[in-house]
């Protein structure tokens, strides 16, 4: 159970689906639904990969990402950004803030698996 992924996502159905897919792929999955407390959770869990939704209650994924990248301990953490808004400027912003990968909802399960594994450097 070496590989840990943390899903920061507020839609329970999506969390359940992603959790199902990634755990079948060998990932140990944790989830968190609140943006405001997400940073604490990330530090506490210490995941190998972070899946981060943009629209979160309390605090947006972008802000979390910015803080994350400013923190030396977490700066290198691979992050997969998810957004349901799917505009080009969202992608640009995510990349500018240092997202390792960016995906627009909805996505195929295979793409999710590939993306997570890819950014984890285990492709």
């Amino acid at each position: 159970m070496g590989r840990k992924v943390l899903l920061v996502e507020d839609e329970p159905n999506i969390v359940e689906a992603m959790g199902f897919i990634l755990s079948r792929d060998g990932w140990s999955v944790a989830s968190h639904a609140n943006g405001e407390t997400a940073m604490d959770e990330i530090r506490r869990v210490g995941p190998d990969v972070l899946v981060l939704d943009v629209m979160l209650p309390g605090r947006s994924g972008y802000e979390i990402l910015r803080e994350l990248r400013a923190d030396a301990a977490l700066a290198a953490l691979p992050v997969l950004m998810l957004t349901a808004r799917g505009q080009e400027k969202d992608r640009a912003l995510a990349e500018e803030l240092g997202a390792t990968r960016f995906m627009t909802k909805p996505f195929s399960n295979a793409d999710l698996r590939k993306a997570v594994n890819h950014i984890a450097g285990e492709d």
Partner: peptide, 9 residues
Amino acid sequence: RTPMTSIRA
């Protein structure tokens, strides 16, 4: 997109 994500997944 949010419900669609769940549906597709």
